[in-house]
């Protein structure tokens, strides 16, 4: 007997490749959205700092705007720099 698979329609869930499950700022799951957004994924992306911590982009931007002087990572207090992959 020979079996040929012609096509396969499967189901998968997507997730962020990150060290943590939840955003350290809003406490929501990364796969969910920040409090401001309605749609997850492309519309509410994650960003990484050079310190390797990551957050919802909207969350960290909002956080940084509230810190006029020392722009620090809210997790490790190192000065924040975006890690552009």
């Amino acid at each position: 007997m020979k079996l040929t698979i012609k096509s396969w329609t499967g189901v998968a869930s997507w997730r962020w490749i990150a060290n943590d499950e939840n955003c350290g700022i809003c406490r929501m799951s990364f796969e969910s959205t920040c409090p401001e957004c309605a749609l997850p994924g492309d519309d509410c992306p994650l960003v990484w700092g050079v310190c390797s911590h990551c957050f919802h982009m909207h969350c960290i931007v909002k956080w940084l705007n509230l810190q006029p002087l020392n722009k620090q990572c809210p997790m490790c207090r190192q000065s924040w720099k975006f890690n552009i992959h």
Binding site: K6, T9, V11, A12, W14, R15
Partner: peptide, 22 residues
């Protein structure tokens, strides 16, 4: 295609089009 994201497959769900020769 989608940076920093990956997939977890739910293998048990889906539809497979197959051809059996016997």
């Amino acid at each position: 295609y989608k940076g920093n994201r990956t997939l977890n497959w739910r293998t048990v769900t889906g539809r497979v089009n197959i051809l059996i020769e016997i």
